[in-house]
């Protein structure tokens, strides 16, 4: 007798989404949905653009460093050029002078592209919401944002959580009707508050 040890449920997203049937002649037959396979590949190889403007960049670097190592989840390839990146992590304040640069970086990225607004400044202007003449009140005035992380600066664990949220979002996408973000055309600079 004794205690029955239950096998841990390892039915996680990391498994290949589909059924693999041995064909008998050494090969395999894969039965799956195309959406699932594409999303599965896409969400585990998110390459982020190194875009740190201020304090949050330090916590972003910390997330990639020893203690909370985000390469465990497939985010470790930080690119410095937007043409090779899938996701922008906006780590820091966006000012009026920086906003056109951010917009250009976003436009240069290849589809599908995602945006994480990290920290209070990128979410809403944060501590610079009142009385500041040069801060854009939230990065979503410039480019569409998928995931927001509050905090000033957010902890590395919060950034990891946001990345998981982005993975969840990607796994629910469909080729037929993609989640359309309604890109912000001719962004307003959002300085009149």
């Amino acid at each position: 007798m004794g205690i029955e040890v239950k096998k841990a449920n390892i039915e996680t997203e990391e498994k290949f989404p589909g059924e693999i049937i041995p064909a008998g002649n050494g090969g395999n037959i894969v039965v799956s949905k195309l959406d699932d396979v594409i999303n599965w590949g896409r969400k585990h190889s998110l390459w982020s653009l190194y875009f740190g403007t201020s304090c949050c960049a330090i916590e972003m670097m910390q997330t990639g460093a020893s203690k909370t190592d985000y390469s465990r989840f497939g985010f470790e390839v930080a690119r410095v050029t937007p043409r090779q990146a899938d996701v922008i992590i906006i780590a820091g304040t966006i000012t009026v002078k920086m906003a056109p640069v951010l917009r250009r970086l976003y436009d240069q990225m290849a589809e599908p592209k995602y945006v994480i607004a990290m920290g209070a400044c990128a979410v809403s202007g944060g501590p610079f919401y009142f009385n500041s003449y040069s801060v854009v009140r939230g990065a979503d005035h410039v480019i569409p944002v998928d995931v927001y992380i509050p905090g000033c600066p957010p902890r590395p664990e919060a950034l990891l959580d946001a990345m998981f949220e982005l993975q969840n979002k990607i796994s629910n996408e469909s080729m037929r009707h993609r989640v359309n973000n309604n890109p912000v055309d001719g962004f307003d600079e959002g300085t009149t508050k």
């Binding site: 000012t95 920086m98 501590p127 009142f130 009385n131 500041s132 040069s134």
Partner: peptide, 23 residues
């Protein structure tokens, strides 16, 4: 320069000394 100019000096003129510290 100026890509991350956040007008902290000007903002400080509108808030009290205790509040300036957090900026």
């Amino acid at each position: 320069m100026g890509y991350i100019h956040r007008s902290i000096e000007k903002m400080s003129e509108h808030i009290t000394y205790k509040q300036i510290i957090h900026l």
